[in-house]
């Protein structure tokens, strides 16, 4: 009994930590997809660039980890805004096939760019002392890093919900996701709104990239390809543009993925794809999505 409880809590802690990471990275993607109906396969590239910036700020430059995360957030958010204005805007409203190809092109360029600048070797991060070791919860020791992940994720989720439910810009975003033309008719500048959301989403992805280097097993230039699928799956399972749905999907997939790999180290990889398959058949618009 004690052993079963121990296993269950382990899965829960590690699964939720992973889920938080998935949510932080995917939520921006979900909103941009819901808002513009835009298929952005390059979202993982922003997470990758954020991860690299964090690593390089911490290791050679000696910037504290948390500060490095904040810098990565702002740098990549700015990058996102520039990309949106210069490149992405040309493919909004184009057929989805065009968007898929265009953003895959951006993934390719980012993969090449990262290996040009930082080389092809896997990167790892030197975590500060304070995030190493275990924290004692009374009945169980859990790694500080995972606990930090969960707390940080919780704070971000709360901030996001607050921002979306209680601020004017949040209300505008909800209106635009719901019915873009109607929102425009009411004088909401959806174009500018979208740039802001895009920048914010890119910044969040960068934050996730920096936070998750350890959980995701190091950074490589192919990161943007390897994780492209999983972020999209979280968004699709949750329902486009639905933050609550994305959160539920991240929890579901994060825990199932960890449990699958825990019990079946050899074959656990395809569990989440199986779950995705079933969920999307049952609800093609995602768990909480609208038809």
């Amino acid at each position: 009994m004690a052993a079963a409880f121990d296993i269950a809590t382990t899965i829960l802690v590690f699964g939720v930590a992973y889920a938080m990471l998935l949510f932080i990275i995917s939520v921006g993607l979900s909103i941009t997809m819901g808002l513009m109906g835009f298929v952005n396969l390059a979202h993982g590239a922003f997470a990758m660039v954020g991860g690299y910036i964090t690593v390089k700020l911490v290791a050679p430059l000696g910037v504290p980890y948390l500060l490095a995360l904040v810098i990565a957030f702002f740098l990549v958010a700015a990058l996102g805004a520039v990309m949106d204005r210069l490149l992405y805007r040309h493919v909004y409203g184009r057929p989805e096939l065009d968007q898929v190809l265009f953003t895959i092109g951006i993934v390719f360029v980012s993969v090449a760019g990262v290996s040009f600048v930082w080389g092809p070797d896997p990167q790892n991060i030197l975590l500060p002392e304070i995030l190493l070791g275990d924290v004692d919860l009374g009945f169980k020791n859990i790694p500080v890093y995972r606990a930090f992940m969960i707390v940080a994720g919780g704070v971000i989720v709360a901030a996001l919900f607050f921002g979306l439910e209680r601020t004017k810009i949040g209300a505008q975003v909800r209106a635009a996701v719901d019915n873009r033309r109607m929102a425009e008719s009411c004088g909401i500048p959806t174009g500018r709104l979208f740039t802001i959301i895009f920048a914010l989403g890119s910044g969040m992805a960068a934050l996730g990239g920096g936070l998750g280097i350890q959980i995701l097993g190091g950074l490589k230039p192919v990161f943007a390809f390897e994780y492209l699928v999983i972020f999209l799956i979280v968004v699709a399972v949750g329902g486009l543009g639905n933050i609550r749905g994305t959160f539920v999907a991240a929890l579901l997939l994060g825990i199932i993925d960890f449990a699958g790999k825990y019990f079946l180290p050899e074959g656990g990889g395809f569990f989440i794809y199986g779950v995705t398959f079933i969920v999307l058949l049952w609800r093609p618009h995602g768990l909480l999505g609208k038809a």
Binding site: L101, G105, V107, S110
Partner: peptide
């Protein structure tokens, strides 16, 4: 990558 972007 560049070819794809330019094509689209």
């Amino acid at each position: 990558g560049v070819a794809l972007i330019v094509t689209v």
